[in-house]
Design a protein around this nucleic acid. Structure first.
Lengths: 152, 152
DNA sequence: AAAGATTGACTACTCAATCTTT
DNA sequence: AAAGATTGAGTAGTCAATCTTT
């Protein structure tokens, strides 16, 4: 099933990676221009906001992002400093933290959402037809197995 | 032609961005494990290696990457320090630099290539059929117009 | 020993300001 | 003034080492 990549295939993949990077960059820029924090904050707030009681183990939230543990730890530091979430002792396991979203955090996620969707509409939605978006989504689903994870 | 994005569409796009980021991360990790510098170095060396006389204006190389000017400048600092390229005065415009790849730079690009292709084969090629790769490449071509560029 | 989390020291990125040449 | 490039100071990401609990 695997095909040894030719130079052309590799170039095509380089384009895909560059485009993905560029698209994310555009969303980041739109958020920044609107005075909001980076996309990674949204991802964290999104997970917590839909969790029961707005509460999840830190390691579980981390696994939803693509950040390494030490990196995620510092992201949580910053978010806690801005009081959009707080760390709590986990009653089930003394090694672990629970993260709990605050009201300020829920409000921030809500405020970021329209910027996020507008950026996607402007930069992406306007360039592809609906069926093409579905196609793309399906292809990327095949590329995102459970073992996709950044270092450490 | 544009469709106002629904929550589902936005989630699909979030998946696409995450997957693109994860794929790039995997290639970066493979390069690092093999003792090589980041992907951005490869992109720069690739442009210079195929340019006539291995020489191009700095700003032109920069425009091929997704880096901001100040950021690219520091990348060139690091690469020049490792002697894989060197800055030269541009005879046509006193404001501008030319970048010239060195023999060491050509050798580095050549050495990175097999790691690059192997990473793509292992992480990507093995998961999609050839026609799916072509599909994906076509869709991303529509998403990469000339105006895609990082800040400043 | 392994899992979860954190920290110190270092590297890389970012913003705003600057310098030179056009 | 605008284009190309660079720099100082501050922020974020990275690696290896560490601490606590299981």
């Amino acid at each position: 099933m695997s095909v040894k990549p030719s130079a052309d295939t590799v170039e095509a993949w380089a384009r895909v990676m560059h485009a993905g990077q560029a698209l994310q960059e555009m969303v980041e820029q739109d958020l920044k221009r609107a005075g909001f924090p980076p996309l990674a904050w949204y991802d964290v707030l999104y997970e917590l906001d839909r969790a029961p009681n707005g509460l999840m183990p830190q390691s579980q939230v981390q696994s939803q992002t693509l950040l390494a543990q030490y990196n995620f730890c510092r992201l949580v530091d910053r978010m806690e400093r801005e009081e959009v979430l707080k760390r709590q002792q986990c009653p089930r396991d003394g090694r672990s933290n629970d993260l709990r979203i605050t009201e300020k955090g829920r409000a921030l996620r809500k405020a970021m959402w329209p910027i996020y969707t507008k950026a996607i509409e402007a930069n992406i939605g306007a360039r592809l037809e609906a069926h093409e978006t579905r196609q793309l989504s399906r292809l990327f689903a095949k590329l995102l197995p459970a073992d996709v994870k950044a270092g450490s």
